[in-house]
Simulated assay, not measured.
Amino acid sequence: MDGGSLAALRELVESGRVTPAVDRTYPLREAPEAIRYLAVEHARAKVVITV
């Protein structure tokens, strides 16, 4: 992806016209559970680990 495409994507995200699909969010201390969820539960969107 080139710089122009990244800038266009950034504008879409910042304007709210594109939003990421997040299935679940886990704190860092629960990273093993997040990985288990990905492997066993078959996440339908992204799984986020917060720091």
Rank of each mutant, 00 (worst) to 15 (best):
K46I: 06
L28G: 05
R29N: 09
V40I: 04
A7Q: 07
E30K: 13
T50G: 05
A8E: 05
E33K: 15
A21H: 10
I35Y: 08
R17K: 15
P27L: 03
D23L: 01
V13C: 12
L12W: 07
Y37E: 00
V13E: 13
L38H: 03
V51F: 15
E33T: 15
A7R: 08
A31F: 08
L28P: 01
E30H: 14
D2V: 11
G16R: 04
T19E: 14
A8M: 02
R10G: 12
A31M: 13
I35D: 03
R29Q: 12
I35N: 07
A43H: 09
I49L: 10
A8D: 06
A21P: 02
E33H: 15
R29L: 06
Y37S: 00
T50K: 05
E11N: 10
G16Q: 05
E14G: 12
A21N: 09
L28I: 04
V18M: 07
D23Q: 04
A21L: 10
A34W: 00
A43S: 14
R10L: 08
S5V: 10
A21M: 10
S5I: 09
V40R: 00
V48G: 07
A34V: 05
E14A: 15
A34G: 06
R10T: 12
S5Y: 06
V51N: 15
E30Y: 08
D23I: 02
E14W: 07
L38A: 10
A45Y: 09
A43C: 12
R29G: 06
A39F: 03
T25F: 08
R29D: 07
S15R: 11
T19H: 14
R24E: 14
K46Q: 11
V48I: 09
A39W: 01
T19S: 14
